[in-house]
Amino acid sequence: MSDREFYLSQVADVIRGLFDEYDGPITMETTARDVPQWDSLSHVRLMVLIEQELGVRFSTTEVQGFKNLGSLIDAVVKHKN
């Protein structure tokens, strides 16, 4: 498993924990629009949980600018290295 896939699996865990009604697929292409419970309010909560779980801190620009989970994982990889 590559680093990116590993981080995605961790992020997927967090997403399923927070958005308990969602049971669809979670991939690099997943965006907030795919998950009905994922609104702007819960987005902040999600970012905090991912930060806690993965031990990273996103920047002000990043928290608002993720295009999809792939770009979030890119940021995780960047902070981890």
Partner: peptide, 15 residues
């Protein structure tokens, strides 16, 4: 948390 304050108008850390 200045990031949460500016991005989501949260007065204190969400965590």
């Amino acid at each position: 948390d200045p990031i949460a304050y500016h991005s989501a108008k949260v007065p204190f850390s969400v965590q």
